[in-house]
């Protein structure tokens, strides 16, 4: 079952293994951690896994950058790489906004532990 070809196939997909491991690690961190900063870090790792995914999918083995030059025959697909530049910018914006919110939460609650915040909120009355 595990002949050389299968093992080569599996190893050849190393980028995608990395993607899946990062994705799950990040996702788990977002869900399991109570600290808001750690949640943001987890969210970042989750997003980075998608960046790696897009970058890997555009790469063609032996392909070069898509420039007009003699002797270059195979090109990698630049589109996913360009797309992910945009996604990285979006990711930075999301992270900075999340961190700004954490700062404000820390000012108002004196804690950034989610369970402690929930205990505090539980006792609050609903007023506009």
């Amino acid at each position: 079952m595990f002949d050389l070809a299968t093992i080569k196939d599996l190893l050849g997909l190393v980028n995608y293994w990395v993607v899946i491991v990062l994705m799950m690690a990040g996702f788990y961190t977002v869900i399991a951690q109570h600290n808001l900063i750690k949640k943001v870090v987890g969210l970042n790792i989750f997003q980075v896994s998608v960046f790696v995914f897009y970058i890997s999918m555009g790469k063609v083995s032996g392909g070069s950058a898509p420039i007009l030059k003699d002797g270059i025959e195979t090109y990698s697909n630049p589109l996913p790489h360009v797309l992910i530049l945009t996604a990285i910018v979006v990711g930075v914006a999301t992270t900075s906004l999340a961190l700004a919110l954490v700062v404000r939460i820390h000012h108002s609650y004196d804690t950034i532990e989610e369970d402690e915040i929930q205990t505090i909120e539980h006792g609050e009355e609903d007023i506009a």
Binding site: L43, I105, E124
Partner: peptide, 23 residues
């Protein structure tokens, strides 16, 4: 209300996960 902050943070986490799933 200060709970607006935590509501926004919670929405940010879930909204970003949703958008990332989309891409």
């Amino acid at each position: 209300d200060r709970r607006a902050l935590t509501a926004a943070f919670r929405y940010l986490i879930m909204g970003t996960i949703g958008a990332t799933f989309y891409i």
